[in-house]
Design a protein around this nucleic acid. Structure first.
Lengths: 192, 192
DNA sequence: GTCTATAGGCCGATAGAC
DNA sequence: GTCTATCGGCCTATAGAC
């Protein structure tokens, strides 16, 4: 792997762990094991390195989510697969985490990749809910966009619960609870 | 108001906006409009000031949530009141936000007030869900702890969605969607 | 109880050798 | 392309005057 890639990867790790305000370019180069000159040769500064790292993280996240959601089961099965997907829960979401950073939210360059990744995820989930509605799998009163939102939010908020308590149990409880609310058996569903 | 209170209040504001790693003692004293000597007279340093600020914020949040949840309507009505409660959505949750901070999570002194506040909120919501179950208001298959979690998570995750998109619309969509899933009319509920 | 001055550290960025 | 040296800035914390 080339030096720029090393730097971007180190930046991804630190942005995930400490956010934008907590990540110094010095720490990035230290983590990447490269000198100061090398870093400045490849990147103009933090405002140049951070977007590259965020874009790469966002792309990886989007691809992983897309793969889970692109399966072949019922709508409920695919949403379930997304919610139950393996995660490093106590580390939180490398993309969603950035929204708590004022410097990320302040400008479009850093915010855009975050917004697009989460927006696409919501859109994809809404499509799947619509498919479920078409199949009579869900209560016809449900609005796809309004179901996609709490699905994503339960994951993002689940990280908050888990990190607050220091345990993944609360994340898991949230996922199970949301699935019980979505369950075709629990809703009036096609049987209504 | 006394000088220590000024400092704690300034710390609360900055911790909400920029988190622990992004908040310098210097910025706190600047915001409070006091000098360096005054600050060090009242507080030993950031590890002394931050817990005081976090505890006060957590107490205020807990009291506000308790008031909304202590109403007299049906279980659904009280959960609905909590979810629809007025919020400064784009600023996010002053308590939940802290969970994304590695320095807050690292030690018990800063994490404990956050954990207790969120834990009590979950517990209170679970009690209300149990009341709803007792009244036949909800589907009997629902587990109180597992419903309380996505309720809190939808709020916490809703902040992520809203801040990512720069709009409160996604937060509102999540709340509406979750309420539609909880609605006695949509579930099999007492009619099952 | 509050001020100013100062010490010492880390940071971001640049300059220049190799 | 990578290094080391260095400047200027902001920070945390302390010391001492008032």
């Amino acid at each position: 792997m080339s030096t720029p890639d090393h730097l971007v990867e180190a930046a991804q790790e630190l942005l995930w762990e400490r956010g934008y305000v907590g990540t110094s370019p010095r720490a990035i180069q230290r983590q990447a094991g490269v000198g100061q000159g090398s870093r400045y040769h490849h990147f103009a500064g933090k405002p140049d390195l951070a977007p590259a790292a965020i874009r790469r993280t966002a792309a990886a996240m989007g691809a992983a989510a897309g793969q889970v959601l692109g399966g072949r089961g019922s709508a409920y099965d695919r949403i379930s697969a997304y919610l139950l997907r393996e995660r490093d829960v106590l580390r939180g979401c490398p993309v969603g985490r950035l929204t708590m950073d004022p410097d990320v939210i302040a400008g479009d360059e850093l915010r855009a990749p975050v917004d697009e990744t989460i927006g696409r995820l919501r859109g994809r989930l809404a499509e799947i809910v619509q498919e479920g509605l078409d199949q009579g799998e869900f209560d016809g009163a449900l609005v796809p966009d309004e179901i996609a939102a709490p699905v994503v939010a339960t994951v993002q908020g689940g990280y908050v619960l888990a990190r607050a308590s220091g345990s993944t149990a609360t994340f898991d409880a949230g996922v199970r609870g949301l699935l019980s609310l979505l369950s075709p058996r629990a809703g009036s569903g096609s049987a209504a």
